[in-house]
């Protein structure tokens, strides 16, 4: 099969790296070739972050380019809009409705665009948006928003058994936070 391309985007510190680690594990368990590419360092200090996840029979490039992403999983609205042009025609965006103002907006030198979900839909994107932060808080912690989003993502891949997602979750999450993260994952999957 041709490669499937998933981008995980968000704000440094939101837990995107752990989510991509879990996703990579799930996909490898399905017997696919997988590449996961991320950038560490300066951008993790509250900057815009992106992880590329590609899988298929054979994956060469570790990065996803404009117009190539099948799914963009976004932890924050503005980040979904920032990476919109990476979406393949017919691809899907799943975005958290949370807004985190970047420093240029905080200092007043730029404006946070309004009605982003509507605008992305008007541009032709299939957008699924929800208050996944609220689901995470309900599950026990705002920090579990990454697992809520992984739950949402899992619902897009019905051919992958749920237990494979859960065993990957167990492998990447510390034992003492396991129950909360399982609850967050379930909340996202069933949202």
């Amino acid at each position: 099969m041709a490669c499937t391309n998933i981008m995980i985007v968000g704000v440094g510190g939101q837990g995107t790296l752990l989510a991509s680690k879990m996703l990579g594990r799930v996909l490898l368990d399905q017997g696919w070739d997988v590449k996961v590419s991320e950038v560490h360092g300066m951008s993790q200090r509250g900057g815009s972050v992106v992880t590329y996840v590609r899988f298929g029979d054979r994956v060469f490039s570790p990065v996803i380019d404009r117009g190539e992403a099948d799914v963009i999983l976004s932890f924050e609205q503005l980040e979904a809009a920032r990476w919109l042009e990476y979406l393949k025609p017919g691809g899907k965006i799943v975005t958290n409705l949370q807004k985190i103002e970047p420093m240029p907006v905080i200092t007043g030198s730029a404006a946070y665009p309004d009605a982003l979900v509507d605008k992305m839909r008007a541009a032709g994107a299939d957008v699924e948006a929800g208050d996944y932060l609220a689901l995470a808080v309900k599950a026990g912690s705002a920090k579990a928003v990454n697992m809520v989003l992984m739950g949402r993502l899992s619902a897009l891949f019905p051919e992958i058994p749920e237990e494979d997602w859960l065993s990957a979750l167990e492998a990447v999450v510390p034992a003492r936070f396991l129950e909360m993260n399982r609850a967050a994952f379930a909340a996202g999957r069933n949202a």
């Binding site: 200090r45 900057g47 490039s61 117009g67 920032r82 042009e85 979406l87 665009p113």
Partner: peptide, 30 residues
């Protein structure tokens, strides 16, 4: 990237969607 290689060689690059609003940058912060 693969896109850059295609573009430099004059090969077709995938089409993509965008919105008109300027997207404010999100630089890293202390």
């Amino acid at each position: 990237s693969q896109d850059l290689v295609r573009a430099c060689l004059g090969l077709p690059v995938p089409s993509s969607a965008s919105i008109d609003d300027p997207i404010p940058p999100r630089p890293p912060v202390m």
